[in-house]
């Protein structure tokens, strides 16, 4: 079994035929390492990320405040720049947390949307297609204002701004994710669907064991790109909903100190520090999937 030279067709040896059937001492190896099994990997990543962030339930709180005396037209100063770093990181954490929680919604809701849109029943697929297209073609900025006024106008609904933020991000990116899933599902070869029919697999087995495990790896790089994009959209929430993310940090410091250059420059650096490694990870993922396909 440890024979690596299995590619060429083994000549039909005597042992192939002579071995009496049913007398095997045989261990089924887990044929793939768990991290190569998308149906394991994806939930694991999402759940671990989500839970570890949720475990730190409280968003960091407290007002952003600089230690410097305010003064107009002060030229750029590195001291001032560096002393803002811890507060920027606090804002960045809030932004990242909203991104991940939002994306957790997007990745799972997106799959549901994709399946609804594929439904054979038009009274399911048509509304699903309409909702997806509608949300996808309106800007997230408008959606945030809309969500805010909707929550204000609904007396029985009180939501923390940060919750509104990740719901909006979640739904918005779910529509993008659903299109990615749809493309991934369509990329599963016709023969796989036909084999599922020939084996009389029930729909649940077909989807969970055959289609989704083959569709999701193709979708992962796209989802990764959307995650990075979502990260860059989340600060819109600071402007609209006053969530305490990086942009809120910079706005506060500017209002207090009248020194806008340093905080904005700093959050630029903050984004770079997150986006670059993320983009690198996505590229790695793409390459490893190419490789898997050989």
């Amino acid at each position: 079994m440890a024979d690596d030279n299995h590619r060429p067709e083994a000549p039909p040896t005597a042992s192939d035929d002579a071995r009496p059937a049913g007398t095997f001492e045989f261990e089924i190896e887990q044929s793939h390492k768990w991290y190569r099994r998308p149906e394991v990997l994806v939930p694991v990543i999402l759940v671990v990320l989500g839970l570890s962030l949720l475990a730190v339930v409280e968003a960091p709180s407290g007002r952003f405040r600089s230690q410097f005396t305010p003064g107009r037209d002060v030229s750029f100063g590195w001291d001032y720049f560096f002393h803002l770093v811890p507060q920027m990181l606090r804002g960045l954490y809030t932004t990242a947390r909203a991104t991940v929680l939002g994306f957790l919604i997007a990745a799972s809701l997106g799959l549901v949307m994709a399946l609804l849109r594929r439904s054979e029943r038009p009274y399911v697929s048509l509304p699903a297609a309409f909702v997806i297209e509608f949300i996808r073609s309106t800007p997230i900025l408008v959606q945030m204002f809309f969500a805010q006024v909707l929550v204000r106008a609904t007396p029985w609904l009180t939501l923390n701004p940060i919750v509104i933020l990740f719901i909006v991000v979640g739904i918005h990116y779910a529509t993008y994710a659903s299109e990615a899933y749809r493309a991934g599902i369509n990329s599963v070869p016709k023969g796989q669907w036909e084999a599922s029919i020939a084996l009389n697999l029930d729909p649940a087995t077909k989807w969970t064991r055959i289609i989704i495990p083959q569709a999701v790896p193709n979708v992962l790089p796209t989802l990764g790109n959307y995650l990075v994009a979502a990260f860059k959209d989340v600060p819109i929430g600071d402007a609209v909903l006053s969530t305490a993310g990086v942009l809120f940090f910079a706005n506060t410091i500017r209002a207090d100190d009248f020194r806008p250059v340093e905080p904005y420059l700093l959050i630029g650096v903050g984004f770079l520090l997150v986006s670059l490694p993320a983009a690198w990870l996505v590229r790695r993922l793409e390459e490893s999937i190419e490789y898997e396909r050989d």
Binding site: I28, S31, R37, N200, T205, Q214
Partner: peptide, 30 residues
């Protein structure tokens, strides 16, 4: 349909499962 089986020109094996997993899937799940 459960009385019928088919073998295809292009095999249509499930590429993400081993040989034995391919063979076991329908008996276990169906």
């Amino acid at each position: 349909r459960s009385n019928i089986g088919m073998v295809f020109q292009h095999f249509n094996l499930f590429p993400h499962m081993s040989a034995i997993e391919n063979v076991m899937l329908a008996p276990v799940k169906v």
